Simulated assay, not measured.
Amino acid sequence: MDFSFITDFFAHIYEFIQYLWDWMTTGIYLFIKEVMVFLTKVLIYAYFKSMIFAAQIGYEVVQDIFDDLGVTQEVQNAYSLIPEGMRNTLSFFRIPEALTIIFSAIPTRWAMKFIPFIGR
């Protein structure tokens, strides 16, 4: 009578137990590592999305405040009161463009204060 099926059975049991042992010693570590990498990616993505969202909200709020205060209109009125010759000289040195950059940077800087870890 051939009893090779018994040795095959125990060989398969041994392979199964060896597979479980290998998974317990190295597979769990790799699984947990992959899960932690995935969670880190998700958290970093969520962090940047929330930073962008906060920046958009802050910029919109500061822009509305500046529009309500009429800062731009007041600067334009004050600039138009300057005599023509002086305005030509200021235009030659590109002062109006510099003022535009400065007055657009101020609300941006205020909006940056609403961003966590940047606008301290």
Rank of each mutant, 00 (worst) to 15 (best):
E34G: 13
K113D: 00
E74R: 14
V37D: 12
N77K: 12
L43C: 13
Y45R: 15
W23N: 15
R109W: 08
T108H: 09
F66C: 02
A55K: 00
I118H: 00
T25C: 05
K49Y: 01
P83T: 04
P83S: 07
K49D: 01
Y19Q: 15
E34N: 13
H12V: 04
P107D: 05
F117T: 09
E84G: 07
F9I: 05
F53G: 02
I65R: 09
D2W: 07
A78C: 05
L90D: 00
I6A: 12
Q56W: 03
T25M: 13
S104P: 03
E34M: 14
I102W: 11
D68V: 04
N88Y: 01
D22A: 06
K113T: 10
P107V: 02
Q18Y: 12
L43Y: 08
I106Q: 12
Y19A: 09
T7L: 08
E97L: 15
L99A: 06
F5Y: 12
L30Q: 15
D22P: 01
E84T: 09
V37H: 08
E15R: 15
F92V: 07
A46S: 08
F117V: 04
Y59W: 07
A98H: 14
M112K: 00
R94E: 15
L69E: 13
T72I: 02
E97C: 08
I17R: 13
D22G: 15
R87W: 03
P116E: 01
W21S: 13
V62I: 15
N77P: 03
F31T: 13
A105L: 13
I32A: 11
E84A: 13
K49T: 11
S4M: 10
G27H: 06
I52Q: 03
I17V: 14
A111C: 02
I118N: 00
T40M: 11
